[in-house]
Design a protein around this nucleic acid. Sequence first.
DNA 1: AATGAATGAGGCTTCATTCAT
DNA 2: TATGAATGAAGCCTCATTCAT
Lengths: 224, 224, 224, 224
Amino acid sequence: MSTPVATPTHPPRQRRKEARPQELIDAALELFAEKGFAATRSEEVAARAGVAKGTLYLYYPSKEELLKAVISQRLSSEIAAVTEYARGYRGSCDSLLREVFTEWWSRVFDSPTSAVFKLVITEVRNFPDIAAFYRGAVVEPATALVGEIVERGIRSGEFRPIDVHGTVMSLVFPMIMLCLHKHSLGACAPATEMMDPHGFIRQHVDIVLHGLRADPSASARGVA
Amino acid sequence: MSTPVATPTHPPRQRRKEARPQELIDAALELFAEKGFAATRSEEVAARAGVAKGTLYLYYPSKEELLKAVISQRLSSEIAAVTEYARGYRGSCDSLLREVFTEWWSRVFDSPTSAVFKLVITEVRNFPDIAAFYRGAVVEPATALVGEIVERGIRSGEFRPIDVHGTVMSLVFPMIMLCLHKHSLGACAPATEMMDPHGFIRQHVDIVLHGLRADPSASARGVA
Amino acid sequence: MSTPVATPTHPPRQRRKEARPQELIDAALELFAEKGFAATRSEEVAARAGVAKGTLYLYYPSKEELLKAVISQRLSSEIAAVTEYARGYRGSCDSLLREVFTEWWSRVFDSPTSAVFKLVITEVRNFPDIAAFYRGAVVEPATALVGEIVERGIRSGEFRPIDVHGTVMSLVFPMIMLCLHKHSLGACAPATEMMDPHGFIRQHVDIVLHGLRADPSASARGVA
Amino acid sequence: MSTPVATPTHPPRQRRKEARPQELIDAALELFAEKGFAATRSEEVAARAGVAKGTLYLYYPSKEELLKAVISQRLSSEIAAVTEYARGYRGSCDSLLREVFTEWWSRVFDSPTSAVFKLVITEVRNFPDIAAFYRGAVVEPATALVGEIVERGIRSGEFRPIDVHGTVMSLVFPMIMLCLHKHSLGACAPATEMMDPHGFIRQHVDIVLHGLRADPSASARGVA
DNA sequence: AATGAATGAGGCTTCATTCAT
DNA sequence: TATGAATGAAGCCTCATTCAT
């Protein structure tokens, strides 16, 4: 029995102009990825960010603009970071690819960024702006980065000659799928949690790189 | 593949009511996959199926029941067909897996079924019923089918010892990703259409099976 | 004590597709003129027209379009009718003007049309479309009609030479003011109802026409 | 009419708080007359007065109180001034009326006061307080002032016997209409600006007074 | 006294669903 | 059985007002 108060107690107002945009984006990413953009009410986003309905609109002029901010904010920085990471690496393409994917995976899977993939898959068709942005800021740089390494490996004879773009997708697609899974079926209650995702990715990269290796006997024959 | 003239086109006036449910499901799958469940108006579904708004409700009691019908209808039959296809196959696990995936892929990618994956990814979290159904009717049988073949390959020494479940995912995930892509980014206008999907899948399965082989030189011998 | 009914009794639905638009326009005119466009809730309009909120939007796509329909619907027809009425009249300009204004006034003042003037005055600045329409469909034809009669009277020597456009306004403005008054101060409760409006207009036209007459002595001198 | 350089412009930093209420009222009158009370945001009023949103509420407890202040502030003083002006005038009623209306018109039309009429017309029905105030402080004194002059003219034989109240309206209504016009249609862009308003009013008063004269030939003699 | 971030009631509009025809 | 007019709950967004700074 708490002391009954007649006056409707307003939650204490906080002025936090600087922090709000990020808090709203974080809340929105969670909810949009969980329920979809259309099924998320803007009031829910505000509530999860700890503000009132109207406050959201002080920072983003509409729910749609919020969506665009959510998507553009997370991804570009990750790609840039990994590209930087790969620059100037010395060693075999095999080990560089292992490094790159391990790095990327560690940044993405356990972070909220993993949810962005679901959001993009789900919403591009409704918001063409997003398609253009995602292609230019994510798909192209990432494809270029990995594609160049694979290409180098083929030219050096480390990998057998094979379609480069397809190889990139063979490497990357399962990682994205795992992100999607995490935010869809994987988030549904009574799941026998599918193996350790980090272990899976390590094994997946290993299998693919194994499958890329130039056939030693063939190359032996070719060299001989 | 198309039967040019023979299809018995029923005159539109006497389209019999037995065809309606399937027409509604087809229309709904297209639209739900394109725009998402929440963003699709039930009137649009009716319109695409060629009936009036009210008619939809004579066949499905609510938009949500329609969604469940859409998802449950397409997938179970495919899995059953492929399982049947694999039963009693004689030959190497490598070639069986190539057969199975080729068969499955040819059934799924170019058919409306490819859209179901996007729908499931998008909507499971909002409709827990769907998660249960999808796990039981799709994930488990499919995983079991492929997993058993891989396991057999390992036991027979054809494949190197490796985590089975992970291997299944390495094989399957890119195929699902390609279905998702087809209905999201891939459907957005100015796309350099990513390679031929059938070619990609053939190469992907090849790379992975290559990476699974117990002894490269042995396989080289086998191939040679 | 009426029989209590548990089920929420829905008012009987009526299908009246043909009659709705006019009913909605009539309701909207009353309310917009009474409270102003911005202060009228679209639900009130619907309620006064005897339909539910959503029904309004089956006939007009937005509150603003409803406003435009309200304004354009009433006025054009009145002007046309009066112009028709004046065509082919034979007699003095003085008596023609009396006829025209009596006719116009009898059509407008006691009908809902009187409210349109308030609406136009109030809302033109917010909706430039309305200004263009009103000028073209009302101001210009009406000014032309009356102006031509006055001009004829001047040329024939029946009226003294005087600015024509100003004269038209001297005649018309009090009539419009009376319409405005009827829907503003005049509608506020404890009013000593200002004289009979019809009597006032008759006297006003009489005074102005009196004031327009060519000075008999002057013209006598001029003629002599 | 403008005093070019002499106006003591206060440095904006030390604009003293005594000026604020008038600045707010001026800003509010402009905006309320332009867009209507309901369609004007209180933040706009504050901005036009050069203060922040919150500051408005330090001077007026609500938007509605601000409206009442706007209306009551402007008009009473004008009436008083003109009444004073008319008191003790010696000469014909005809010339007194010309004087009075010229004086009143020169005070009102080119000043912000002209906007008050639109505001009253628009908002009385929503705010009954305003009706009472306006009747008592404006309509009655003004009617009384003009009515008495007309009455005197009739009793003295200068004007023909005619309904006094109606005559007052015949004189005054076009002036108010012109004020309304200035703030509605007249403010909409591509207007062939209707004649000079001052010229129009002079002619209008002339026509009406002409129409009031007891005997045209007598007046002809007077003029001649 | 002044500011402007924050609040939340309230209005416009959409759309799943119902039901008279 | 099929239709589509009608309904009203619910979501997006605005803005008068409050209050921490």
